[in-house]
């Protein structure tokens, strides 16, 4: 199904976590007007585990996800993926890791309208130097896996929201991705279609050992995860952990 055979249980850090976020802070701006999106967030995700991130709007969920995916750099802290601290890598090394190992489903999908479904999915592979024919075959496999193989030649604009969502997921799982990060992938879908998307993500973790992280507002979707964590004002609250003091909530914003 993929060009390179993934080992079922890829090496992670000593703790076995494939994704290891350590004391992340992310501050936008400076001084009085600075926004502290993350204020010391630590979180690990094992291979095969799906973690849901919930929290009110503006609590830092997307910021956490973009840092985990190497799309943004934390102000301080370390982002270990497969044991490598990506905050210490060069830009091009991070970009390569993103194309090969990290799948990202954007809140607004980010499909390219001028490309067909299969071309959208094949794009990261081709950018990575994989021959066009091989890339297309891998992309077609990924589309089959998300259940829309028949729509491979359609353009995004000619597809329903749920179908586009599946193209975006296919693009995030194509090849040998070890990490799957999804920012509200069920946004505008009805609950039944949303379930289908969750089933897909869940399956990637269960049968491919992918480390998954899902941002969602919906409890019913978060409930598909092995673990659910909450962000409140840039502070992570594991449901099983202590509650943050109201002071933290009142201090900022």
């Amino acid at each position: 199904m993929t060009a390179t055979a993934p080992s079922p249980h890829p090496a992670g850090t000593a703790t076995g976590a494939y994704v290891d976020l350590r004391a992340l802070t992310r501050t936008f701006g400076e001084g009085e007007t600075a926004a502290h999106a993350l204020r010391g967030v630590s979180l690990t995700i094992q291979a095969g585990e799906l973690v849901a991130v919930m929290g009110p709007s503006g609590s830092g969920k997307s910021t956490l996800l973009t840092c985990a995916g190497g799309l943004d750099l934390p102000t301080s802290g370390a982002v270990l993926v497969g044991g490598v601290d990506i905050t210490a890598l060069s830009r091009s090394a991070v970009a390569e890791l993103r194309r090969r190992r990290i799948g990202y489903v954007f809140q607004d999908l980010n499909l390219i309208p001028a490309l067909t479904a299969v071309e959208n999915v094949a794009l990261p592979l081709e950018l990575d130097g994989i021959r066009a024919r091989t890339a297309r075959r891998m992309a077609a496999d990924a589309l089959d896996e998300t259940g829309i193989g028949k729509l491979a030649e359609r353009f995004p604009d000619d597809m329903s929201g749920g179908q586009q969502q599946r193209v975006a997921i296919a693009r995030a799982i194509v090849g040998d991705r070890r990490v799957l990060l999804a920012d509200e992938p069920t946004g505008a879908l009805d609950s039944e279609t949303g379930d289908t998307v969750l089933r897909l993500l869940r399956d990637r973790c269960d049968s491919h050992g992918v480390a998954g992280m899902l941002v969602t507002h919906e409890a019913r979707h978060a409930a598909w995860a092995d673990r659910i964590v909450f962000l409140r004002d840039g502070v992570l609250v594991d449901e099983s952990g202590p509650t943050p003091s109201i002071e933290t909530l009142l201090d900022e914003s």
Binding site: A219, A222, A223, I228, E239, S240
Partner: peptide
């Protein structure tokens, strides 16, 4: 309560 309800939601799922 939220934690408890969330857990049952996970079990139901």
């Amino acid at each position: 309560q939220r934690t408890t309800t969330m857990r049952s939601l996970q079990e139901l799922t």
